[in-house]
Design a binder for these strands. Structure first.
Lengths: 221, 221
DNA sequence: ACCCTTCAGTGATATTGTCACCTAAGCCGT
DNA sequence: ACGGCTTAGGTGACAATATCACTGAAGGGT
């Protein structure tokens, strides 16, 4: 008997009929990917739908001019659904997925994905719900980029990046990519945060000193 | 015998098996909506997937601060697929769809959509392909807003809005919504375009005088 | 004609992005 | 330990865009 335990970790999949769970497990394979690997990207159309058991994947886009912006992240317990559209549509995907940590994932091949979509209403619902969430994320990015102030956005991003502990090993450059802005802008805003006592900095490291004030700033529309 | 002719107008649906075509037509109904109607929006979860036979739907988002940005347009021969995610996921959709012209559309109820997804590989492929295109559109919006110059974006938008004829009945305010910027910014850029002889203006109307120069500007990365 | 609403123009100022260049920190080999 | 190299970060000057607070102009309705 194969192990179906991982399925329970995915919100919405636990209600799958047992037969479908078995099918899902039978046709999938577990893979392990080291940190910093591009799991999909322009030109490299993936042929698997990934369910993340552990780790995190960052999805970002590089513009023609070479500048980057982070679109969203896929966390453990979620799946890389947006790639499925391109996966099944045989369309290239202009975004790129990079593992931020070591990642363990269950890979479902294209054919198996299609069979599951055909056979299980619950699976369809799971996939569509995941879609809805991602699309909401994208709408949020558009809203932020178009109308958000960068100090507000940076404060929010620092808080969410430092979800475990107050230390953050990142560079100004990487933060600029997070928000789709320029390094100099991040440097200046962080300098300001530092003067106000919100953070402390050293080369490649940012320490959050006052989460409360950062939150307050992040919430201010 | 019901009329399946409209199906042929949708790229990807013509290859559907006849039985599926019949099912599609049997479960759907044609509707006509006047211009300027909100076909879906926040709070108003639609319960139909729309296939546009004629007309155009503008999909836009309003931020908390009350400012708007146009996300994409659904043209005749396309479908409002992104709503299906929210439709089936029972999630609210933060964007709003407004008819820009009178619209004739075929409406497929939620249940029928789900049955078609289950029964037809071709239908699934159609839906996923449409998804892929929309998502690509969204990525493009993000790229433009984050990294694009406003004069370049405006030039491009003027050209695509004036696809039939060189007259454009629109206000500076509406153009600001198109690009997610402020009216004053549009006013200044248009003033500049006017001085350079690219366009002529009168209250509520813009005339393109030099599409070639506008194109050249729009292409400049 | 007059009011009233909407549309458009403009200066002042704030915010953000770009460019050019500099300094500092850590690493690595000798 | 020293010097050289690479990458991270700082800064001034300036450009582009956004915001604010007005102004006047155009057209519609009475």
């Amino acid at each position: 008997m194969v192990d179906t335990a991982w399925i329970e970790r995915f919100h919405g999949l636990s209600t799958l009929p047992d037969a479908v769970k078995a099918q899902l497990v039978a046709e999938s394979s577990v893979m392990k990917v080291p940190a910093g690997t591009a799991v999909f990207g322009p030109g490299a159309v993936p042929d698997n739908l990934l369910f993340l058991l552990n780790g995190r994947v960052r999805v970002q886009q590089t513009s023609e001019s070479g500048r980057d912006i982070v679109l969203y992240r896929v966390e453990a317990g979620e799946s890389c659904v947006l790639t499925t559209a391109c996966l099944l549509a045989h369309e290239p995907y202009s975004a790129e997925g990079v593992t931020e940590t070591e990642v363990t994932a269950v890979a479902i091949p294209r054919g198996a994905f299609d069979r599951l979509m055909a056979s299980s209403k619950e699976f369809r619902e799971f996939v569509l719900t995941a879609y809805a969430r991602r699309i909401t994320d994208l709408f949020r990015v558009i809203d932020d980029v178009a109308f958000g102030r960068i100090d507000v956005r940076l404060a929010g991003r620092l808080l969410s990046l430092a979800s475990d502990g107050d230390e953050l090993a990142t560079t100004h450059s990487q933060l600029a990519t997070e928000l789709g802005t320029a390094r100099e802008v991040i440097s200046r805003v962080l300098h300001d945060f530092q003067k106000r006592g919100f953070v402390a900095q050293s080369r490649g490291k940012i320490t959050l000193l006052d989460r409360a004030m950062l939150s307050r700033l992040a919430e201010s529309a």
